[in-house]
Amino acid sequence: MPNSLTESISLILSLDKDLIDITLLTLRITLSSLTLSIIIGLPIGTLLGLSRHIPARGFIMAFLYTGMGLPPVVVGLVVFILLSRSGPMGHLEWLFSPNAMILAQTIIALPIIVGLTMASTGSTHPSLPQQVTSLGATKLQTAITILSESKYGLLAAIAATYGRIVAEVGAVLLVGGNIETKTRVLTTAIVLETRKGAFGFALGLGLILLTITFVANIILLRFGNWNNDQR
């Protein structure tokens, strides 16, 4: 174990090319999925959070909360079937490509970001939208104000979504195939290296995974000015 740790640290410090490639691909796929999830999920979550009287709201919430626990391998399997040559999206030829991985991760991430955004915007005072409107806000301005008021909850939603995406292994292994230089990301590489007995390299990958998650959270916290702006 100490040897493996030393080996992993020296690998990171030597800026091993394979390590850098895997890290960059991980970042690319994670950030793409996160961006897509935010673009799609934030407005839906806000709408659900603010529309307290929409029909079947309880059912939608139950559906979303179930989605938060969606098994990644099941998502991977469904995306695999959709993208396979005979599947309805086979013509895209995305299987075993980063696009397939982004698609799978976005599907996994969406219920999390929608659900947490809905909870966050919905927890503002029920009369806040009306009060904001009474001061002259348009519907868009009201939504933006509510989002701004739910800033901490939204940052937590983004952090949770990022964490789920970056640590995901089952779905990306299925639809990406863990192909070297093409679809190998940190999590799938850790699985492979562990199976090979290359614990040093696997640990190095794990350390990088933890580091980029930590850095991402620091950036999020700074963005939210969390240190000196708490309620």
Partner: peptide, 26 residues
């Protein structure tokens, strides 16, 4: 028309930002 509610909800901002809020909307 502007209205002050019975239980006013202020924004989690500074006093100045809250007072300027309606003007900024316009």
């Amino acid at each position: 028309v502007a209205m002050m509610f019975q239980n006013p909800q202020l924004l989690n901002k500074s006093v100045r930002s809250n007072i300027e809020y309606g003007l900024k909307l316009r």
